[in-house]
Structure formats: structure tokens, C-alpha cells
Design a protein around this nucleic acid. Structure first.
Length: 288
DNA sequence: TAGCCGTGGCA
DNA sequence: TTGCCAAGGCT
């Protein structure tokens, strides 16, 4: 069904694809894995400089595995969700210890790595190894919701119906190219807020556009406030540890957040998550 | 499974 | 200005 989407989207991609370094022929599986984890919930433009630095510093899983986890956290910078840095470090050590230093190629082996879920396993298996998998990220889900289901947004959690649909659309040849093309269409044209239907290669067949672009009907899409949350507090504390290069007296952490109760809770959380380490004499540092 | 986990740009 | 959102994953 809906295979009429293939040619227009693939042709559009051939003309409009961005030249991203992890898409180049010389990008190996490790470079692609690093990019995919960095790109989780994070815009391309913010990933580019950090990915460049990581690839120079740690060109192989073994190079990263040889470092303490805190170095991964330090060089994560302000990308956000810093446990991804820890996950990538754990990936590097698992790949070194269990896979001979080479990123595994099967979906199942990839899915078993820390921080690698359904999307990332399918993406790496496809883009690094040429596998044929339904790659369901937020872009693909939105494009299919609109073009096929006629709805402005996909449901909050991925449904089996979405997966069935995506699998039914897998082309017999070059599934990875199809996956990246749909993702790119969602990222550049079929965007969440102001879709550019005038530039869309499948506008004529799009169920949502043909229905008059009806507004989203489903349950409210929660927007979470950030100011004053534990997440913001954790971010402030970790920023101090990242920039310190060594032990930080607790007093230096106290000054970045006023609410002492929340600050203690956040600091304990960072330690529990392995993002920080408590030292004797009321000091903290990135994990060694 | 719903809530949590960072950060910054943009409409 | 502020809410929304960005190649999700984990519990």
C-alpha cells in the first residue's frame, strides 16, 4: 500500500539531502552510532561540532573505552541528556569487550547496547550495515501520520499499527536510502509546526493535506516547563563539574542553586546515575 | 505507561 | 515572551 510514495520521496531526497558528515561514504559504524545517540532529541546543528570533536578524539570504540567515563561526560558539553555520554562510553566498553572492538551489525546485538532502543538499533543496522528495518523516528512517524493516516501528528507512543505501516512500506531495494529520505523530508519539509506543503513531493497524495489539514484531535500534547525543575538544577551542577577538571568543593556547587533541598536531591540523583562521584571532604567530580 | 531525563532556538 | 520542539530511551 501507498508505494506511490517511494519514487517522489527518493527523487526529492536526491536533490535536497543535506551533506552531513555521518552520511558520507567514509563514515564507519562507530561514527554512525555516535551520531545517532547524539541526535536523540537533539537538533543536527548542535550535534555537528560535538560529533566532530568526538571523532577526532575517539576515532574508535577502543579509544573511548580507554578513558574514564567522566571524560565522555566532559566532552559532551551542553548537548543535553548527559546520560547519553555515559551510555556511549558503556557502548564503547561493551563493543571492546564483547565484539572485538567492532560495532555489531545485527539489530539484536545493537539493541542490547546501553542507550540503544528500537529507533537507534534500526538506524545503525540500516545506515552502517545496509540492513532492511523499519526506522521509526519522530520525523518518519509524522510523515506517515499525515501522508497516509491523514492526521496532523502521530500518537504519543509508537503503535503496532504504525510499525505495520512502516514495515509494509519497506522497499525491496535500498531500504536504508528510503529510511533516510523519509526522515529528511520530515526534518526539512513536513515539519511539526509549519509544514511546507508547497515544497512537498507527495503533497498531491497527502491524506492530511487533501482533508484540508485538520487540526490535531488527539489527547493533549504535554509541554513540560523547565525553569525551576530538578532537570535544570542537575544541568547547573553538572556544568560546574564539567568545567572544573578535578575535585570541586561542595561550596562551589551550592552557589549555582538556591533551594538547598532541591539541590541535594539533584546532586544525589547525579551520583546515583553515575554522572558524578562523591569524594571525601565534601567534594565532587566527574566519574573516574 | 506515564514521567523523567538537558538544552537552546524559534514562532 | 513563552511554549513548543529537536534522528529517544529507560523505568
Amino acid at each position: 500500500m501507498a508505494t506511490g510514495l517511494h519514487a517522489p520521496i527518493l527523487d526529492w531526497y536526491a536533490e535536497n539531502a543535506r551533506d552531513l558528515p555521518w552520511r558520507r561514504p567514509d563514515a564507519g559504524p562507530w561514527a554512525i552510532l555516535v551520531s545517532e545517540i547524539m541526535l536523540q532529541q537533539t537538533p543536527v546543528v548542535r550535534v555537528l561540532p560535538v560529533w566532530d570533536e568526538w571523532m577526532r578524539r575517539w576515532p574508535t570504540p577502543a579509544a573511548l573505552a580507554a578513558e574514564p567515563p567522566g571524560e565522555a561526560v566532559r566532552h559532551w558539553g551542553r548537548l543535553g541528556y548527559p546520560r547519553r555520554a555515559l551510555n556511549l562510553h558503556a557502548c564503547a566498553r561493551a563493543i571492546t569487550a564483547e565484539h572485538g572492538g567492532r560495532v555489531p551489525s545485527s539489530y539484536e546485538s545493537l539493541r542490547a547496547l546501553p542507550g540503544v532502543g528500537d529507533y537507534t538499533a534500526a538506524a545503525v543496522a540500516s545506515f552502517a550495515f545496509g540492513g532492511s528495518h523499519a526506522v521509526l523516528d519522530t520525523n518518519v512517524r509524522r510523515v506517515l501520520a499525515r501522508a497516509v493516516r491523514g492526521e496532523e501528528y502521530p500518537p504519543k507512543a509508537t503503535t503496532t499499527a504504525e510499525r505495520k505501516l512502516a514495515e509494509s512500506l519497506l522497499p525491496p531495494l535500498d531500504a536504508p536510502r528510503w529510511a533516510v529520505a523519509v526522515m529528511e523530508l520530515g526534518a526539512l519539509v513536513c515539519t511539526a509546526r509549519a509544514p511546507r506543503c508547497a515544497d512537498c513531493p507527495v503533497a498531491a497524495a497527502c491524506a492530511w493535506r487533501l482533508a484540508g489539514r485538520p487540526a490535531y484531535q488527539g489527547p493533549e500534547r504535554r509541554g513540560q516547563t523547565y525553569a525551576g525543575t530538578d532537570r535544570q538544577c542537575r544541568g547547573r551542577l553538572l556544568a560546574v563539574l564539567r568545567e572544573a577538571h578535578g575535585a570541586v568543593p561542595k561550596a562551589a556547587l551550592d552557589v549555582v542553586w538556591d533551594d538547598a533541598v532541591q539541590r541535594e536531591r539533584a546532586l544525589d540523583g547525579l551520583v546515583a546515575d553515575g554522572l558524578a562521584e562523591a569524594l571525601p571532604d565534601d567534594a565532587y567530580r566527574l566519574p573516574a
